[in-house]
């Protein structure tokens, strides 16, 4: 075994340290490339009492309101927003509470690929033994209920299809007792409706207001939420798999998380 100078040993140690420095640098570099999958902002539900909170969201047919500086290709992507706060799909809700979610739906309807998502599931309010949600103040449990509501609301018809779904699902890390599954079809605006609402200079139709409630368990658990009504890629009429690409795939648009935390 050759004798090596202490400079040689220092060289080994320095290389290893430098090497791990490079590893850390590459980690930071990769995480900061926004095109690869950036984190979106966070929206907190507004507490309305010790055990209740309200979450207000809006869905738009394009990015102009929430993501005005989007690159051209993404400008036509539909978005979920909170107010006009920019892309924010990490939702925070308080623990052990009833959460009321109110969604202003500006987008028109698209036929579901999987009828499973036409049914309201997992909400805490019931109507005729079925979980229900409210459409402009009237209860419904399935998209087939919508035509009856339409007939009773003069001057305002709804699309028979949802524009989106809001579906909260559990992940492998979720403790089985705390599993949550909530899915609500967000009924679409009729495509013939006039565009008479002005938001930041963009014209949309009168939105459908859909609201529903669900309960949260203890703090510290993160669920996922995702839209299951394909709308992406206008060129190919949403036939699978194309309907599910683009905004459906991208954090900050139609995929995000629901975290139960104390605040």
């Amino acid at each position: 075994m050759k004798q090596h100078s202490s400079g040689f040993i220092i060289g080994i140690v320095a290389s290893i340290i430098l090497g791990f420095g490079i590893v850390a640098g590459i980690w930071l570099g990769l995480s900061s490339i926004s095109g690869l999958g950036s984190e979106s902002g966070v929206v907190q539900a507004t507490r309305t009492g010790p055990n209740s909170a309200t979450l207000e969201l809006a869905t738009y047919p394009d990015s102009h309101v929430c993501h005005a500086d989007a690159p051209a290709a993404q400008a036509i992507w539909v978005t979920y927003c909170s107010g006009t706060n920019g892309l924010a799909t990490h939702l925070e809700v308080p623990p052990n509470s009833v959460i009321t979610v109110v969604i202003k739906q500006y987008d028109s309807g698209t036929t579901l690929i999987n009828n499973y998502f036409g049914q309201v599931r997992g909400t805490s309010q019931m109507s005729n033994g079925q979980p229900m949600a409210m459409l402009d103040g009237k209860p419904f449990s399935n998209i087939s209920d919508v035509s009856a509501i339409s007939k009773n609301t003069p001057g305002h018809t709804f699309s028979s299809d949802p524009g989106h779904t809001f579906t909260i699902q559990s992940a492998p890390n979720t403790p089985p007792d705390e599993a949550i599954f909530v899915s609500v079809p967000l009924i679409g605006v009729n495509s013939n409706a006039p565009t008479n609402v002005n938001i930041n200079g963009n014209m949309y139709s009168t939105p459908n207001i859909i609201s529903f409630q669900f309960r949260t368990g203890p703090a510290g658990i993160t669920y996922l939420w995702h839209c299951y009504d394909p709308c992406g890629d206008t060129q190919y009429a949403r036939k699978p798999p194309f309907g599910f690409s683009g905004p459906m795939w991208t954090l900050g648009y139609m995929a995000g998380t629901v975290s139960v935390t104390n605040y």
């Binding site: 690929i113 999987n114 499973y116 599931r121 997992g122 579906t167 699902q169 559990s170 599993a179 599954f181 996922l224 995702h226 299951y228 599910f244 459906m248 795939w249």
Partner: peptide, 22 residues
């Protein structure tokens, strides 16, 4: 079993039931 990005949904065609949750 129907797989979608990113959820499985389940039907029991012999009973006309579908699983309400995961």
């Amino acid at each position: 079993v129907t797989g979608q990005q990113w959820l499985w949904s389940f039907d029991y065609p012999q009973y006309g039931a579908s699983s309400q949750s995961q």
